[in-house]
Design a protein around this nucleic acid. Structure first.
Lengths: 205, 205
DNA sequence: GGTACGTTGAACTAGCCAGTTCATTTTCTC
DNA sequence: GAGAAAATGAACTGGCTAGTTCAACGTACC
């Protein structure tokens, strides 16, 4: 590690923006340096080269995304009580979780990971190991607890967790990524509410 | 339209492969020409340039994908009869539909569309207008018919169609795209079966 | 203030690539 | 077979970019 921390962070932030805007190939180091307010050699001093820079940006971004997603699960109720409270609690968690998934930064990150998956196969492992699997495990644990409390009737909590996530977000993230637009809050909320309703029709005890 | 049809098709096929392998930026016209067995100027004669070529490849690919996906819905039963037959029929359709969605070519296409969505915003409209919306509409229509036949209890067929697709595929396609692997048939089948089971727990009459 | 380290702006290099040109060959149609 | 259109291989052009170099300047620490 060399150089000033504030320079390094400015580089990472700027690089994320430029990569998100132009994609890996068309994001030039010159543009990133200008956006970061540093000289081009400074980027090489700190991050070594374009590939390393991209890796650092992606790993950094994934860590933030995962932390936010796990934090969204802190709102998960151990036992919310009656069915109305259960629905409200699941909608709340769904909106929080869906908010993380559908966040513009998260979508930009995912699009970059998808676009560059062939060039950076190691990044998939980093993202999956540190994030998606842990989030789904944590969610499965919470669903199992609700089942144990007699609120849900679930045979396989891991599967139910996967389906909960699939139901609340549907294809909103992919469509937003493709269209280059943001997921609107009302669209997300509607998706979460109908997703939770379907989830409860299937799994409420 | 100039040139020989077989040359044009060879170019489109080869271009798809090279774009899928290397992404838009790193796919060189030289490489595409070599893969197609044509001279570089032939590509310019037929397709005009790299951007037009990419558009033609994507539109062509999306049309094939959409035709296949709509055809998968032809297996949808008007009224399969008893609950076991309904489940079996939905699993069959799910596997067919999921097979289209998770097909390697479809995943490659989607990854390219996602990666290049900012450069080619018009492609999203082409894909959405000709495909995804029609497929979901067709699926909603068939679900509504099952509801009318008293087999399903569905308030909103469009929403139910979206959720059916979300449940059967989950995040298998995205994970496959990110990891650069294929969706395994057994994984897809398991996802479809548990997805259909959840769907029926929620919506069976 | 002196020293060491980090940063800078400008210039450079080598490689890559989309698009173009052209004389020649091939293919197709009559 | 003749003529027109399509295709070819080779070479070229101009633009772009990752990475490098360097003298000079800026910053931090003692």
């Amino acid at each position: 590690m060399r150089g000033r921390l504030d320079k390094r962070q400015a580089i990472l932030d700027a690089a994320f923006r430029v990569f998100a805007e132009h994609g890996y190939e068309r994001a030039s180091i010159d543009a990133i340096a200008a956006a970061a307010g540093v000289a081009k050699p400074t980027i090489y001093n700190h991050l070594g080269g374009k590939e390393n820079l991209f890796r650092a940006v992606m790993v950094n971004s994934a860590e933030q995304f995962n932390a936010r997603t796990l934090a969204a699960l802190d709102a998960f109720p151990a036992d919310p009580g009656d069915p109305d409270a259960l629905r409200a609690a699941l909608v709340d968690v769904g909106v929080r979780l869906g908010g993380c998934i559908a966040d513009d930064r998260a979508l930009a990150m995912q699009r970059l990971l998808l676009a560059e998956s062939r060039r950076f196969p190691d990044l998939f492992a980093a993202v999956r190991g540190s994030g998606r699997d842990r989030v789904h495990d944590a969610l499965a644990g919470r669903l199992a607890r609700l089942a144990h409390a007699g609120r849900l009737d679930i045979a396989d909590p891991v599967c139910a967790a996967d389906q909960f996530v699939a139901l609340i977000s549907g294809d909103l993230p992919v469509l937003a990524m493709m269209s280059g637009t943001s997921v609107r809050a009302q669209d997300l909320r509607r998706s979460v509410e109908s997703g939770v309703d379907t989830f409860l029709r299937a799994f409420a005890a």
